[in-house]
Design a binder for these strands. Structure first.
Lengths: 235, 235
DNA sequence: TGGTATTCGTGTCTTTGTAACACTTAATTG
DNA sequence: CAATTAAGTGTTACAAAGACACGAATACCA
């Protein structure tokens, strides 16, 4: 077979938006860019799609390169394709976002990137169109989490209801009523109460819960309406 | 500036999924592919991203090339990036879907593609991964239309409630209760009742409605819950 | 011209879900 | 053992959703 010989070939990159939750706040993992242009500036973790790998594989590879983690929740968000978004050369960027349990993240030994977790409101200036990407990812995360139980991906295996509520509070930057929140969350049947308590964060201690994994798989795609009045928060 | 000289450059294509509604059924516009491989087989309309245009511009150009239409509703869906999805050469495809008023579509004179509208259930076999793309687009359309008033993009300026309901029936392949449907739709405040009736489709005639464009813009992003029990239809 | 067939358009009731709201309980600390 | 702190829980009012049936308008035909 001959090739599509007359057509222009372009660079295709993958950039990863990596969300984590430290128990109090939603955070974002950023790196110091390792190449020119804008070398050393704050940036999303990215890399070019190689000729033999799928774009999903590229995203997995890049995430692993930075975090050492595999098999975490990851989703393609959007392709950013304005010419001129990278001043050096035209690059089409496929943006993925990942949700990781921040406690599983360990700084990699050979870390040329000097990565750092940032609060959303303390984000530094980012290169190119990366801020736009982050805004799009946050919007998408809010949208998705309003309808699907995706935020559990950010928590450790065992977690408490107050932690879960803090997570929602952080993601939506809004307060939730404790009673309504726990009723709604428990009514999904997705959580299994444990016998032990987390005593770190309060005198009384809060019971741990774990996810019922089979129900989680089944119900992930259902509309669950986690967030009251989504209009108020999402748009 | 030097370029990212060591990296592989790839072909990037845009493929368009074009939905239309003929008053009774949801349809899809397909073409006979104009180049090798698989020349002459049924395919989505597509083309390569040129070096000076954004990916969105490419999508608009390709849609116009086939339909003659500009400024219609169009949205990026997903990037398909498995190596080997095109046997000739690696191509990353950015899939867009468009919603057009089928009555505005006129066959283009110089039409090398022999396009044809298909019912979803009568779709022919498509090349490459195009069927997967169509399935993803349909799922996305159902998802989006359950929450946002996007299906109006498929209707002419003046339309009746029975037509609108037929559209929802077609998109979700499910029956809706007439009374609940009209109550719900009218309660959005998005529709303006006209004085005249459509007498084509019934003896009694059905009143025309038009969209209140300013409210439509405002409320487009709101959660409107157009579809009862979305779980039953969406997954 | 009056009867018949067709589809449009509307209202009520029941059930379910949502949001607002405050007190008791458990455990630690001084 | 008293005080403090955060966890855990229940009720009520209101709104939305879903099930359901009949009268009204018009065209056509006998």
């Amino acid at each position: 077979m001959t090739k599509y010989s007359k057509q222009t070939r372009l660079l295709v990159a993958v950039d990863c938006i990596i969300f984590g939750f430290d128990g109090e706040n939603l955070k974002l993992l950023l790196i110091h860019r390792g190449m020119e242009p804008e070398k050393g500036k704050w940036s999303l973790m990215g890399g070019f799609v190689q000729s033999e790998e799928s774009t999903n594989e590229a995203a997995g590879r890049i995430l692993k390169q930075l975090t050492g983690l595999e098999g975490v929740y990851m989703e393609q968000l959007h392709a950013f394709g304005n010419p001129g978004r990278d001043p050096m050369e035209r690059v089409i960027s496929l943006v993925y976002f990942a949700l990781i349990d921040i406690h599983k993240y360990k700084e990699q030994l050979s870390d040329e990137y000097h990565p750092q977790w940032f609060l959303l409101k303390d984000m530094p200036e980012l290169i190119f169109d990366h801020e736009e990407m982050v805004q799009a990812a946050l919007k998408n995360l809010r949208y998705k989490a309003a309808l699907h139980p995706v935020l559990f991906e950010l928590l450790p295996e065992k977690f408490t209801l107050p932690q879960l509520q803090a997570l929602y509070t952080g993601v939506y930057d809004a307060e939730f009523d404790k009673r309504n929140f726990s009723r709604k969350v428990l009514s999904t049947g997705l959580l299994i109460k444990q016998k032990d308590k987390d005593k770190e964060n309060s005198k009384k201690g809060a019971f741990y819960y774990v996810i019922d994994k089979s129900k989680y798989k089944d119900k992930f795609q259902s509309f669950l309406n986690f967030v009251p009045n989504p209009d108020n928060f999402l748009f």
